[in-house]
Amino acid sequence: MKRSQYAVIGLGRFGSSLAKELIELGYEVLGIDKDEEAVDEMSEKLTHVVVADSTDEEVLRSLGIRNIDCAIVAIGDDIQSSILTAILLKDIGVKQVVAKALSELHGKVLQKIGVDRVIYPERDMGIRVAHQLVSPNLLDYIELSKDYTIAELTVPKRLCGRSLRELDTRAKYGCSVVAINKKNSVIIAPTASDTLDDQDIMVIIGTNQQIELFENEVRR
């Protein structure tokens, strides 16, 4: 089966980190930046790297960008270039266009022009760090939508040895334990009879309010 091919446009801190991780995961990555230094730095780390102006339609077409499965616009500080690049990628017919937004307004514009997914790295990281700071048992926090969140909570000693049936999180709090990460294994879709041990990590899905209620109970 053919692996997906990615293009990362903008090789600043975010773009280069994303591109390198995609390479680590085994995908082919085309890196594009108008800064020659940024391109040189990534030349041996990505599948292909080119110095190019992504706001030039002919240049993008000559790079075969239409054949890319997913293009990520990771341009750091030039909102105009980000928007123009996204418009061109959509016009050329790239299957999936993802773009980094520098602000809420920038994100709204990207959505209006049809970008498939808008990401807010700084905002999202700030939210995750804030939740981790105020919740000692919270290891990670990802907002899935406006209504639902997925969170990782360490199992406190007071819950060790208890089964999911005893916790009954769905009935009491409205959230669900969808996985338990144990020392040497992961239980996906655990049953009511599965028990919690010291140092286990519960993966929970629910609304922010439901998870907060459960997390407050866990901290008692």
Rank of each mutant, 00 (worst) to 15 (best):
L196K: 10
E152V: 07
V186P: 04
T154D: 06
K183F: 00
I188F: 13
K157C: 00
A189N: 15
R219S: 14
E104M: 07
V178H: 05
G174H: 10
I79R: 10
S82R: 04
D69F: 04
A74I: 02
V73W: 03
E152T: 07
H48I: 11
K95W: 00
R128F: 02
V129Y: 13
I83H: 08
Y120K: 11
K45Q: 14
L18G: 06
I211E: 09
Y6V: 00
L213H: 14
I204V: 15
A130K: 06
D197H: 12
R66Y: 09
E21N: 13
A130N: 06
G161H: 10
L213Q: 14
F214N: 03
A71R: 10
D194V: 03
M125N: 12
E21A: 02
N181H: 14
A179G: 06
I83W: 04
V134D: 13
A101S: 13
T154Y: 07
L164Q: 10
D78A: 12
N67P: 02
R13P: 05
I188E: 01
I204G: 00
N181V: 13
L144W: 06
L88S: 08
R128E: 05
K157M: 01
I23T: 05
Y6A: 00
K90Y: 01
L213T: 01
D91K: 15
R117C: 00
D91L: 06
K157E: 13
T55P: 14
I201R: 11
E41H: 07
D53N: 15
E217H: 14
I119F: 01
E212G: 04
V118F: 00
L25R: 12
D168L: 11
A179S: 13
L11G: 05
R3D: 03
S193L: 08
G12C: 04
N137M: 06
